[in-house]
């Protein structure tokens, strides 16, 4: 409802908005170039300039990265989308190791080897709307720390791979509006004395995926003292699932990853469980090239429709059995 209103509002104000952006940018540049210091004051200012200031000040005062995406649009005349259509298929970076998010079922009855899961459903929905064919997709499996380089090198058009929208990442790539809410959680054997993200992690070895927000959080918390100093966070692996391997082999004592992924790990091993409550709030978004504004808006438009039709079915099919709680799409705000 809200989204539709926004869309309607945008239709009328699209042209005006664009002009405002251009004006605002000019104004900001004019102000910033000669007087760099006065930028802070100038940009928090009034009305039309607000849009531009959002982009300009992200680095300094980024608080809600999930609310930074561009407003949706069904326009398909932009260069990025045209290139994709000329090519005829969408290049999507996914995971093939996340149980029920993006993986291959070894026991699948299907004769062909297809990736499946919640992320994969979304990727198909995007291809379906942009190219008119849900299967006009080429999947690229990428490790966690390769997500951003893969987008920047143009190896993929977008990454749909349980990727958290974070302030740091916004400096390098653009995100769609959020499509899933989660938070980091601790996973440990049921018999472990680890009770959650607290002092019980003292002297424990914690595994995280290389380049994940989990590692960034642990690293920052360890420096700030929020995480006990004796916790050992040196073990990093290419994929969060590799942490479960280390945990089962006794090489680490606990795993920190997004609750949604931790739940799918727990679903593969009945002797481990999630410990304590999520200690962060994070949102997954579809990541795209930073300058692919047309594609970001188009994907946001897909998401508008997907939240109404598709999201719930996919959730119930893939994630409800492991997360064991009902859920719905997260609230959406644009820049």
């Amino acid at each position: 409802m809200k989204a539709r209103r926004v869309r309607a509002a945008l239709k009328g104000w699209g042209g005006v908005g664009a002009m405002a952006v251009v004006l605002a940018l000019t104004a900001v540049f004019a102000l910033v170039l000669p007087l760099t210091q006065s930028r802070g004051d100038g940009s928090t200012g009034i009305g039309g300039q607000g849009v531009a200031s959002g982009t300009q000040t992200k680095a300094e005062e980024c608080t809600d990265p999930q609310d930074q995406s561009l407003a949706p649009s069904a326009d398909e005349t932009g260069k990025t989308i045209q290139d994709i259509r000329d090519r005829g298929y969408l290049l999507v970076g996914v995971d093939q190791n996340s149980y029920r998010w993006g993986y291959r079922d070894p026991n699948s009855d299907s004769k062909t080897i297809e990736l499946e899961g919640f992320d994969i459903d979304l990727a198909h929905a995007i291809a379906g709307e942009i190219l008119g064919d849900r299967n006009a997709i080429r999947f690229r499996a990428i490790p966690t720390n390769e997500r951003i380089p893969a987008i920047e090198d143009g190896r993929v058009d977008m990454v749909v791979r349980t990727m958290t929208i974070s302030c740091d990442r916004l400096k390098e790539v653009a995100f769609s509006s959020p499509y899933f809410e989660t938070g980091q959680q601790v996973l440990a054997p049921k018999t472990s004395d680890v009770k959650g993200y607290d002092a019980t992690l003292a002297n424990k070895k914690i595994c995280t995926a290389d380049g994940s927000t989990a590692w960034e959080t642990l690293d920052a918390d360890k420096k700030s003292g929020k995480l006990v100093a004796s916790a050992d966070i040196k073990t990093t692996v290419p994929n969060q699932l590799d942490c479960l391997v280390r945990l089962q082999l006794g090489e680490v004592d606990a795993v920190v990853t997004d609750g949604a992924l931790a739940a799918s790990q727990a679903a593969q091993d009945p002797t481990v469980e999630l410990k304590g409550e999520p200690f962060t709030t994070e949102y997954y978004g579809v990541a795209m090239k930073k300058d692919a504004e047309d594609l970001v808006r188009r994907v946001n438009q897909v998401l508008v429709d997907y939240r109404e039709n598709g999201w719930q079915q996919s959730y119930d099919k893939w994630l409800k059995p492991t997360i064991k709680k009902p859920a719905g799409p997260p609230p959406v705000k644009y820049q």
């Binding site: 996340s98 149980y99 479960l244």
Partner: peptide, 9 residues
Amino acid sequence: RQGYPLGGA
């Protein structure tokens, strides 16, 4: 055999 991607890991 149990259908888990953990096998791949």
